[in-house]
Computed example of a mutant assay.
Amino acid sequence: MAESPRFQPSASLDVVGIGNAIVDVLVQTQDSFLEQHGLAKGGMALIDEQQAETLYQSSGPGLETSGGSVANTMVGIAQLGGRTGFIGRVRDDQLGSIFSHDIRAVGARFDTPPATSGATTARCLIYVTPDAERTMCTFLGASTQLEPQDLDLSMVKETKVLYLEGYLWDSPAAKRAFIAAAEACRKAGGQVALSLSDGFCVDRHRESFLDLVNGHVDVLFANEAEIKSLYETDDFDTALERVRGCCSVIAITRAGEGSVVLNGDQRWDIGIFNLGSLVDTTGAGDLYAGGFLHAYTQGESLERCGELGALCAGQIVTQLGARSQVCLKELRSQHLG
């Protein structure tokens, strides 16, 4: 049985996340739309502001909500009853106002002041086809302007876990902020969690990520493709053996095959929760991390952490978007007691 994590008793927040502050625009569409616009189905492409505007104008009606991988995770934790904060950069524009209001409305603390110049607020156009596959086109905009001086280090020092997304590594400025925050959190007695975010992101920054994983991260989240990419292997078990022991806790999601949680020599294979028809896989990994980190910061067993993560992921794929339309706290009571 793994020991429960020890956190500083003065922590006023459970998890603080630093990530790209993005407004998600979810659109249900057909494969023909993807073909018409040359979009690779199931992928994530970075686009410029002009491309974002062209695609936005060509799209049908969409659901607009605050998004970004880590922001989705913070919202999930808040919905479970956890105390969360988010740090990310928006512009003083309409989408920036949508993001700020939306994330605060669910109870997450968000104090980063909006930028008054530079790129507009980031947005991610998410096209969901009838098979529930999502294709993402992301304009990172103002989110890449996050600098170390933008950090509320008091918030970072008050949290049990600081959660960071690998996407930040694409921006040198955000990368500097990432490192400064991790150092401040560790010095205050907190733990650092990292999501590898995306297989292409791993390909771009493999050496940096390997350095982070080897001794600088306490809790690592990845999916099967990302962990195999990190260690440049096509064999899942080989990747698991390579990563085992690099971090205190490792959680790897495997879509329909559930997830694997590692702690030293221990391994837990966690099944999935089939709660309804598959509608949209957007946010499944984010909500898995949310459920996992909520249980983790409450000192629950790693097996229960994986189960709560799987439950939250199982719920989010039955609806459109990464904001649960049912009460996650009640869902947990129904399925996990």
Rank of each mutant, 00 (worst) to 15 (best):
residue 6 R to A: 08
residue 7 F to I: 05
residue 7 F to H: 05
residue 12 S to T: 15
residue 26 L to P: 00
residue 27 V to S: 04
residue 33 F to Q: 11
residue 33 F to M: 14
residue 37 H to L: 10
residue 43 G to N: 07
residue 47 I to D: 07
residue 51 Q to Y: 07
residue 54 T to W: 11
residue 55 L to Q: 06
residue 61 P to H: 07
residue 65 T to S: 12
residue 66 S to N: 06
residue 67 G to S: 10
residue 68 G to K: 06
residue 73 T to V: 05
residue 74 M to F: 13
residue 76 G to T: 03
residue 83 R to T: 09
residue 84 T to D: 04
residue 85 G to Y: 04
residue 86 F to S: 01
residue 87 I to D: 04
residue 90 V to S: 04
residue 91 R to V: 12
residue 93 D to L: 11
residue 94 Q to C: 11
residue 95 L to S: 10
residue 96 G to Q: 08
residue 112 T to W: 02
residue 114 P to A: 04
residue 115 A to C: 11
residue 118 G to R: 01
residue 120 T to V: 07
residue 123 R to W: 13
residue 124 C to F: 12
residue 132 A to P: 10
residue 133 E to G: 00
residue 133 E to H: 02
residue 140 L to I: 12
residue 143 S to V: 08
residue 144 T to C: 00
residue 144 T to D: 06
residue 144 T to V: 13
residue 144 T to A: 06
residue 147 E to S: 15
residue 149 Q to N: 14
residue 152 D to H: 13
residue 152 D to R: 06
residue 153 L to C: 04
residue 156 V to C: 06
residue 157 K to V: 02
residue 160 K to H: 00
residue 161 V to N: 03
residue 161 V to F: 06
residue 163 Y to F: 03
residue 169 W to V: 11
residue 169 W to M: 11
residue 178 F to H: 10
residue 183 E to M: 12
residue 185 C to S: 01
residue 199 G to N: 14
residue 202 V to T: 10
residue 202 V to D: 09
residue 207 E to K: 14
residue 210 L to M: 15
residue 214 N to V: 10
residue 223 N to Y: 14
residue 224 E to N: 04
residue 227 I to H: 00
residue 227 I to P: 00
residue 229 S to R: 15
residue 231 Y to W: 15
residue 233 T to I: 01
residue 234 D to W: 10
residue 238 T to Q: 03
residue 240 L to H: 01
residue 243 V to M: 03
residue 244 R to F: 03
residue 247 C to Y: 08
residue 250 I to W: 05
residue 253 T to D: 08
residue 255 A to N: 14
residue 258 G to A: 08
residue 264 G to F: 12
residue 269 D to L: 08
residue 269 D to Y: 01
residue 269 D to N: 11
residue 270 I to T: 04
residue 270 I to Q: 00
residue 272 I to P: 09
residue 274 N to P: 09
residue 274 N to F: 09
residue 274 N to I: 12
residue 274 N to K: 14
residue 280 D to Q: 08
residue 280 D to L: 09
residue 283 G to W: 05
residue 285 G to T: 08
residue 289 A to Q: 00
residue 289 A to C: 04
residue 290 G to Y: 07
residue 290 G to S: 15
residue 291 G to H: 03
residue 297 T to A: 01
residue 300 E to M: 15
residue 300 E to S: 13
residue 301 S to D: 09
residue 302 L to Q: 00
residue 306 G to Q: 03
residue 306 G to F: 07
residue 311 L to G: 02
residue 315 Q to S: 10
residue 317 V to D: 11
residue 318 T to F: 13
residue 323 R to I: 11
residue 329 K to A: 10
residue 330 E to C: 03
residue 333 S to V: 11
